[in-house]
Design a protein around this nucleic acid. Structure first.
Lengths: 216, 216
DNA sequence: GTCTATATGTAGATAGAC
DNA sequence: GTCTATCTACATATAGAC
């Protein structure tokens, strides 16, 4: 049972100061970058501390241990991404004659747009790729990303009534895999293709590729 | 300059005994499994030793250090996979009216077939997924997998003359990403779809999906 | 909240007996 | 080739001064 806190008594936990919040943000940004570059096991608290310009103890204080820090860093931007995807989808599906490409774009494009200019979102994309690939983090995926994916599966099903939910889910997994490759594995394209490609056009190509695949 | 070894002098390196070769194979199989489950940084020499049922020193003796061991384990099965893909492709392109699906199948199917019954090839698939995703191992990908991928890019280009090499390379990266997802991330499909899907049908769906994407 | 110092465990690697 | 014992380094985590 929760006991309400008397107005005059000292709060159990004071609101953090502006300075403390700024420190925490620096710690999280640094963790995001280091985890993205080296993965969970390859990253060390000391690397993160050096990147943040903070002593090692501070990382533990704000992160609550390596694994808790990892969880929090992944969850931190998930809500922003989810909202952006859902409002974009809403704008599409409110049109009676919307196209499949627009639905897929609502899923893929927000992530590209965020990552295009902000290096922190580029780090986050790499982090998401790690989380998606490793069964060890399946629980994080389920809470942070699957609910929105389910909404998109539903939207695609309504647009393609002849397809089963399983077929659509399958196609979305294909699409997400390719999306993460574009966001995080530029080197793969550069070694196979003739000229280095631009991410923005890759995104358009991916949407067209996937739309054709879904409609098979 | 190489000095030829006189027939009567002792060789610099004796041929390994049958027993030594068997030990080495056990070490590599164990390393393959542990690296696949935990990634390079998450795996430890001691885990590998325990899995192989060998003392720690033996792992170093046959592997030559953690990173060298990793390289060797990835390279070990690459040649088998490459040959199987190339001969399958050969059989397809020797037919004058072959279909795009058959080319893609020649790339995707051998890996599925090997992994279907042999757990060691399943481990290897996970390992390849790790290697493909991490820029840190880009050099390994370039030597082990890119040459064959180039051949397939060429074959697809000849089948789709209206497409540029870059477009085809892009599509193949999309396809490889999705293929590795099917081979290694069954949990992704299970949480999104309604019923757990079978890998073999997923492979067929992937080929159809990708073929439609290429022909857009 | 911040920082220093330290406790405790375990990593990769090797030397040398067998 | 195989195995035991050990070296050295660095990991996470925490205790306690400020």
């Amino acid at each position: 049972m929760k006991t309400p806190r008397p107005i005059s008594a000292p709060p159990r936990k004071r609101a953090p100061s502006k300075r403390a919040l700024a420190t925490k943000r620096r710690v999280f940004d640094a963790a995001e970058k280091v985890f993205a570059e080296r993965g969970f096991d390859g990253a060390t608290i000391r690397d993160i501390a050096a990147e943040a310009g903070e002593p090692v103890g501070t990382i533990h204080h704000h992160g609550g241990g390596k694994e808790a820090l990892f969880h929090q860093v992944v969850a931190r931007r998930a809500e922003t991404l989810a909202q952006l995807r859902l409002t974009t989808l809403e704008a599409v599906t409110s049109q009676p004659d919307h196209r499949l490409e627009e639905i897929l774009s609502a899923f893929v494009r927000p992530f590209f747009d965020l990552a295009r200019d902000d290096p922190r979102w580029q780090h986050y994309a790499r982090l998401v790729a790690f989380v998606s690939a490793d069964p060890r983090w399946a629980k994080i995926s389920e809470t942070c990303f699957d609910p929105v994916a389910q909404v998109f599966v539903q939207a695609i099903c309504e647009r393609l009534p002849q397809k089963s939910k399983d077929q659509v889910a399958e196609g979305l997994v294909f699409t997400v895999s390719a999306m993460l490759a574009v966001l995080t594995s530029q080197h793969r394209f550069d070694t196979l293709g003739a000229v280095p490609a631009k991410t923005s056009s890759q995104m358009e190509h991916l949407i067209a590729f996937a739309a054709a695949g879904f409609q098979t």
